[in-house]
Amino acid sequence: MSYAFWFNAPLKCLSCGAEIAGNLTGLHTRGLNPEPRDEWVVPDQELALDPDDFDTTYVRVRSPTDGTDFRVIHGWCCPTCNEAQWARLVFRRESANRFRFVTAESVPLAPEELRAAHFISDDVKYWIEEGPPEETKGLSEALGTAE
């Protein structure tokens, strides 16, 4: 059983403008950590990960090409205004089973961000499928999932 990585990287709420300390964002993922414990990770930290770990944790929207960073769009909630927010997590492959957590940055859930992503979290997928049409217009097409 895998436990969570908690990403200790400060984020800015794009709704209310609050600057949120990394340990307060609640930005975490279950299943990516291969160790049987929760772990706080900071930017530039190297992690023992297999590329397949990303597929078991996230929804793949396109395959990373050799030499590219793995980009994940992940949901979080602002503790100040309680609005849904989105972060781009970047992981750099260091070797076959090592990745470096490069950064987490607040981003709008926008077509250009989704077109550049390799993976999305389940909450992003849910928002695209169930969110208000005025906010989700064009997002499915950016993922290549338009019907």
Rank of each mutant, 00 (worst) to 15 (best):
E112H: 01
F5I: 07
G138W: 08
L109T: 09
V72A: 02
P64M: 08
E94T: 08
L27H: 03
H74Q: 14
R71H: 15
L27Q: 02
E134F: 14
C13G: 00
N82L: 15
E129Q: 03
P34H: 06
A48W: 11
D38Q: 14
A21K: 08
I73P: 00
A117N: 05
C16Q: 10
A104M: 02
C81Y: 09
Q45P: 11
W127Q: 15
N33E: 11
T25F: 01
R37K: 15
R92W: 03
E113M: 14
A110C: 04
H74S: 07
T56V: 04
E135W: 11
R98P: 15
W76T: 00
G17H: 02
E94H: 01
E19L: 06
I128G: 13
I20Y: 06
V107P: 10
C13H: 10
L11P: 00
F91I: 07
W6R: 12
G17N: 04
H74R: 06
C77K: 14
E147L: 01
S140C: 06
P108N: 14
T136H: 03
D38W: 12
I73T: 13
A48M: 12
T80M: 09
R62V: 04
F101A: 01
R30H: 14
T65S: 15
H28Q: 13
R92F: 09
F70C: 00
P36T: 02
D52C: 07
D69R: 10
T80C: 02
R92P: 05
L24T: 04
E134G: 08
L109G: 06
P64K: 10
C77M: 11
R93I: 04
R98S: 11
S140R: 12
F7S: 00
E134V: 13
I128R: 03
R100D: 07
C78V: 02
P34L: 03
D66C: 08
L49R: 08
M1G: 09
S140G: 13
E105M: 06
